[in-house]
């Protein structure tokens, strides 16, 4: 099925990243994608563009500069009151218009609730291919095509998906899979404004209200610096206190494997892995977790991994950096104690 690209499609040039703006903030996955998009654009020797949609206020415009600092050469900006909150219909319409007008060869979006909703509609209208939830992107030097890799069957295998004779090639990418690029405040670029003409009356779906989550209670695993996770090996809900004690001393978030969530020991927002969150903290401590692929794919990009498991042959020791073979119920309190002492000593030294 390898074919030479239609002449019309060969006219599609450039890499685009959809920048997800909502209520005054940009989702960090957009910056991660600009970092990755930069590499793809360089490999193709084309420009990298950010696409930013939102209400007509200063905040949105300010993010154009930030997108350029993170690597974009230019930013397409569409501001209009109908784009105030995310809604599928107006967002899909504007993004589709932009693609049809400027013809990028690659369009990347975050695999968030917004990105997946939007990408699914836009790819359908454009009648092009969309690869979901990717963990790796590369350019095939032979045909300049995008090779998008995603885990399948719970991470036990990976598959690389290509989009044949269709453009743009679209993909969604999970937050925290790509590294955060560093911003270069010296970079400059162009901003191209796209006029939005339709009226609120023509949009059927209305946002009545936004109910923010209770931030204090909510875990923010994807962006935590340190995570202490427990698995089925913790045996009982009461024993999870040992995980929480260590987390408190380290200023860490508490994570868990899926059986722990299923048993109801901690909330579902704390699940790490394939069907939970992808994390990349500086330090990940796993106690009583065997290291099944579905858990591993969510955390093996952590800088340092420490595993505590009573089974010396547990798979987690194949990818952890440090291991202690032993009973988590006695090791965890000892670790909490040792960290407390070290951190205290360090404070005194300063």
């Amino acid at each position: 099925r390898a074919q030479k690209l239609d002449e019309r499609l060969a006219g599609y040039k450039g890499v685009w990243v959809f920048v997800e703006y909502e209520r005054g903030q940009v989702h960090p996955v957009s910056w991660e994608l600009l970092g990755e998009g930069r590499k793809l654009a360089d490999a193709l020797k084309v420009e990298l563009a950010a696409v930013l949609l939102g209400p007509p206020d200063g905040a949105v415009r300010g993010f154009c500069d930030q997108a350029i600092h993170y690597g974009a050469d230019l930013c397409y900006l569409a501001c209009h009151p109908v784009l105030k909150d995310y809604r599928n219909a107006p967002y899909s319409a504007v993004l589709t218009e932009l693609v049809n007008r400027y013809c990028p060869e690659i369009l990347l979006l975050g695999a968030t609730t917004l990105g997946r909703d939007l990408a699914g509609s836009v790819a359908t209208t454009l009648k092009t291919g969309l690869t979901a939830d990717c963990t790796g992107l590369a350019i095939d030097p032979e045909n300049r095509g995008l090779a998008a890799t995603r885990p399948t069957f719970g991470g036990s295998l990976l598959c690389t998906i290509v989009t044949l004779n269709y453009r743009p090639q679209m993909a969604t990418i999970r937050p925290r899979v790509m590294a955060m690029p560093s911003a270069d405040a010296g970079r400059t670029g162009r901003v191209i404004e796209h006029p939005v003409t339709f009226l609120e009356e023509s949009i059927i779906t209305k946002v009545l209200e936004f109910i923010p989550d209770d931030r204090a209670a909510e875990a923010n695993l994807p962006f935590a610096d340190i995570i202490v996770s427990g698995g089925r090996g913790m045996k009982r809900q009461e024993n999870f206190r040992l995980i929480q004690d260590l987390a408190r001393v380290l200023g860490a978030e508490v994570g868990a494997s899926r059986p722990v969530i299923q048993a109801g020991w901690v909330g579902a927002d704390r699940q790490v892995g394939q069907s939970g969150k992808t994390v990349r903290p500086r330090l990940y401590i796993a106690a009583g977790i065997s290291g099944a692929v579905q858990h591993r794919v969510g955390m093996d990009k952590s800088d340092v991994i420490i595993a505590i498991n009573e089974d010396a042959n547990a798979p987690i020791f194949d990818f952890a950096h440090y291991g202690i073979v032993g009973n988590a119920m006695t090791i965890l309190p000892a670790l909490t104690q040792a960290f407390t002492e070290h951190l205290r000593a360090r404070k005194q030294a300063c």
Binding site: V162, I316, Y322
Partner: peptide, 19 residues
């Protein structure tokens, strides 16, 4: 429009935890 071009196993890390 999409086609699976290859299926492969994740590269094992050559790591083995320092016990």
């Amino acid at each position: 429009p999409t086609a699976v071009s290859k299926v492969f196993a994740p590269t094992p890390t050559n790591r083995r935890a320092e016990i």
